[in-house]
């Protein structure tokens, strides 16, 4: 069995060190912070399960060749469309989706499409009625249309920048 190579251990040690410092200098807040951490973890557990399932299904149904076809360098408009759709319907915090994106990247997912996915996530379907209620329909439509336009624009620019550097 392949040995696990953990990523972000230094970052985790840094955060643990911050928690230790807070518990020394601001003991009153540490229980609140620990409670928040636990709550957040508990809330995103279903999203982790969804991400693991999606990653497994992508691994199972989409061979690297197909991933390249849909999301690789020649994926074109279809790739952008699927990525925007994926970004819009994906739930939970961005970091919960890193494992899936990392896995797809190893199979040929373009950096530009990762950027498009990340930006399109600013359009949050479940929150749209809430946004309309607070700020009105014109505000919601205008902001979200611009987000999608700029998600595509940003993806194209990232691809150009990374390609330029690789030359």
């Amino acid at each position: 069995m392949k040995k696990l190579k953990f990523k972000g251990l230094k970052f985790l040690f840094f955060v643990v060190a911050l928690f230790i410092l807070v518990s020394i200098f601001d003991f009153e807040n540490i229980a609140k912070i620990m409670d928040k951490t636990g709550n957040m973890l508990f809330k995103i557990l279903p999203i982790f399960a969804l991400v693991i399932t999606l990653t497994a299904l992508i691994n199972y149904f989409l061979k690297p060749k197909k991933i390249m076809k849909y999301f690789g360098k020649d994926s074109g408009t279809k790739g952008i469309f699927y990525t925007l759709l994926g970004g819009i319907i994906s739930h939970g915090p961005m970091y919960a989706w890193y494992p899936m994106l990392d896995d797809m990247r190893k199979h040929g997912l373009k950096f530009g499409l990762i950027a498009t996915f990340m930006y399109a996530r600013a359009v949050k379907i479940p929150l749209l009625p809430f946004m309309v209620g607070l700020f009105g329909l014109p505000f919601t439509v205008i902001v979200n249309v611009y987000i999608l336009i700029f998600a595509i624009f940003q993806g194209k620019l990232i691809d150009l920048l990374i390609k330029e550097k690789e030359k």
Partner: peptide
């Protein structure tokens, strides 16, 4: 893949 990134997520 998920476990690999778990320290970072935590």
């Amino acid at each position: 893949g998920f476990l690999t990134l778990s320290p970072m997520i935590l």
